[in-house]
């Protein structure tokens, strides 16, 4: 009846569909889903950002400012990424060097220190180490009070 079997067609197109018994559920959380539903009920025009009524000259000025801001940010990012890349390369080189010159020191540098905990107050990854780089005798503020 069919000139090509389903298997052949599926293989050709590469579509796979796993069978599951229960209802398919979405990956997003119910609260997110609620927001999505609410937004879908609002008309598209109301979700558009409001247009400022500018004259032609001011609109072009505004675009130029936006262009310059984008350019400035791009350059800043590029510069930062280049520095980070350099830092990483130099760390890597130093470690390679250490591996060859003194394997013991390399081992020691890479040794896991299980007792020393990462300060949990330090939440944001920073570009530079702080003036006091590591607090070895860390106590949680709540423990201090006791």
């Amino acid at each position: 009846m069919f000139q090509q079997s389903r298997k052949v067609v599926i293989e050709q197109t590469g579509v796979i569909r796993d069978f599951i018994r229960h209802k398919r559920t979405s990956a997003i959380s119910p609260s997110t889903q609620r927001v999505v539903n609410q937004l879908s009920a609002i008309s598209a025009t109301r979700k558009q950002p409001k247009l400022i009524n500018l004259c032609n000259e001011d609109l072009i000025k505004h675009r130029t400012i936006t262009n310059a801001w984008k350019l400035y940010n791009r350059k800043k990012n590029e510069k930062r990424m280049a520095t980070l890349q350099k830092q990483y390369e130099s760390i890597k080189n130093a470690m390679e060097d250490l591996k060859h010159t003194s394997p013991e020191l390399y081992e020691a540098a890479n040794k896991k220190e299980t007792e020393k905990r990462f300060p949990i107050e330090m939440r944001i990854p920073t570009e530079y180490p702080p003036t006091k780089p590591w607090i070895y005798e860390y106590t949680h503020p709540s423990e201090k009070e006791k």
Partner: peptide, 23 residues
């Protein structure tokens, strides 16, 4: 003609070919 469509590979289709020789 009963056939599979590569754009919807999980569906069965039925169509009418205007000529006997056509697939």
């Amino acid at each position: 003609r009963f056939y599979y469509n590569p754009f919807h590979p999980l569906r069965k289709y039925v169509g009418v070919a205007l000529k006997k020789s056509l697939t």
